[in-house]
Every structure is written in C-alpha cells, then in structure tokens.
C-alpha cells in the first residue's frame, strides 16, 4: 500500500472527472515507481479511453505537460524511475492551452 496525493492542474482535471486533487491509497508490493503510478492512473482513473492520449504519449507523460514530484521538476528526481514514498505529492500541469 502506498499513499500518494495526485494533482491535475492547468486544465488537465478535465480528463480526470474535473477533480483537481486525489488522495490515493494504491495497493502495491515492493517498489512503486512513477511509471507504475501512470499505469494506475490510466487504468483506473481515466473514464474515457479517448482521453488517454491527452495525458500519455509513447509510454510517458505527454510533452507539454509539466510533472512535479514534491514540487520539484521530475527531471531532477529520476522521472519514471522515481520510487514513490508515502506522503509524496505528484502534480501534472498542462501548458497546452492558450495563455
């Protein structure tokens, strides 16, 4: 079991039932990485299969969406390989809308 808070900002909440934050308890054994989190989000939380491509491209977060792990750029934390710990906050911010 891993406790993680997920945030969808910059309009991405539309894909996730218009809710911006979720406190998730995800059943898992052993290490649970960001890659596993993405798989979980896609399988369990995106209702409309057409919306998956709004979020994921080529097995990773779509270019143009900024991913932060505990408010730090995920590029500094190991991206998909980062092992999530209890209490971590992962946020996804879309930059693909107009300004």
């Amino acid at each position: 079991m891993v406790k993680v808070k997920v945030e969808f900002l910059g309009g991405l909440d539309v894909v996730f039932d218009k809710q911006r934050t979720y406190d998730l308890d995800i059943p898992s054994e052993g290490e649970f990485t960001v890659k596993d989190l993405l798989d979980y989000l896609v399988t369990n939380m995106i209702k409309n299969p057409k919306d998956v491509e709004m979020f994921i491209e080529d097995g990773t977060v779509r270019p143009g969406i900024i991913t932060l792990i505990n408010d730090a750029d995920w590029e500094l934390e190991g991206e998909l390989e980062y092992v999530i710990e209890d209490g971590d906050i992962v946020s996804f911010t879309s930059t693909l809308h107009g300004g």
């Binding site: 910059g10 309009g11 539309v14 900024i66 932060l68 911010t93 879309s94 693909l96 809308h97």
Partner: peptide, 15 residues
Amino acid sequence: VLYAHYKKLDYFSTE
C-alpha cells in the same frame, strides 16, 4: 507556468 505555480499566482486555465 512554473513561475506562476511557485508564486501561487491566480490564473485561469481552461481551453
């Protein structure tokens, strides 16, 4: 976007 995020600026973000 990150500047707005870290400064907690209030912006509108719907397509």
